[in-house]
């Protein structure tokens, strides 16, 4: 690399932090705050997401389909290096879209660190392609992949699947979101948004799972945890 290239490298702006972006979405719908708060408190009370993998634990292997029609195994990806696994609700959720965009911005740093990014969504019928397109816009899209957790099976095995409940499902229906069409099932199940950084040995180095879908792990923190490990 010549000096000019080095200079350009250093001038690459670091990605915007995700937290303030999420706070902004929240502020743009102040009327919904108390409604969502109540739902989140009830889900926390029921222990939803509490049994998700913790730092230091082994992350269970799984294999899920891609939107290109093939199966991808986590273990095969770990053979190439550390993997960040991110569970999102889907393209219909503004928090998820911002989160995945923030990860797309982080892909150059991930590529440099030899880390791969796996985005997981339960959307069916090719719906997962939308989040994939956000990642594909990055020049380092080759380190990212979207997998389809049809029927939220992997989410369930990690304690991340939950029944959304009538108040939330009714609300989504009122604003025109067809959960049945999005997930190919009328179950009303959703995944808890969660982020895990897994080292090549399969051990969890960073773990985040919160039923409050308005909050997400900060991508820079996740990568930092892998670097420290």
């Amino acid at each position: 690399m010549n000096d000019y290239d080095n200079m350009m490298e250093r001038l690459t702006p670091s990605p915007l932090p995700l937290g303030p972006q999420l706070a902004q979405i929240r502020r743009s719908h102040p009327d919904l705050g108390p409604f969502f708060d109540e739902i989140v408190i009830a889900l926390r009370g029921a222990g939803v997401g509490a049994s998700a993998p913790q730092v230091g634990e082994m992350f269970p292997d799984f294999s899920l389909p891609t939107v290109q029609g093939s199966y991808r195994r986590l273990g095969d990806l770990l053979d190439k290096g550390p993997v960040i696994v991110n569970f999102s609700r889907g393209r219909w959720c503004p928090y998820c879209v911002h989160e995945v965009s923030a990860w797309a911005d982080m892909l150059p740093e991930l590529a440099e660190a030899g880390v791969r990014f796996v985005e997981i969504t339960g959307e069916t019928g090719g719906g997962a392609r939308a989040l994939g397109d956000i990642l594909a816009a990055s020049p380092h899209a080759d380190v990212a992949e979207v997998l389809c957790d049809v029927d939220h099976g992997v989410a369930l095995s990690l304690g991340l699947a939950f029944f959304a409940g009538d108040p939330l499902l009714d609300f989504y229906q009122e604003i025109g979101l067809d959960m049945h069409a999005l997930y190919g099932s009328p179950s009303g199940f959703l995944p808890v948004p969660a982020t895990f950084a897994i080292d090549p040995a399969g051990r969890v180095r960073f773990a985040y799972a919160d039923v409050d879908f308005r909050e997400r792990a900060e991508p820079a923190d996740v990568l930092a945890a892998l670097r420290e490990g």
Partner: peptide
Amino acid sequence: AMLPHLERSFEAAQTAKQMARGM
């Protein structure tokens, strides 16, 4: 009402595990 959905998600979880192991 929930039985078929829980059955299906349970099977999905088993499949994801078996596909990883069986590959």
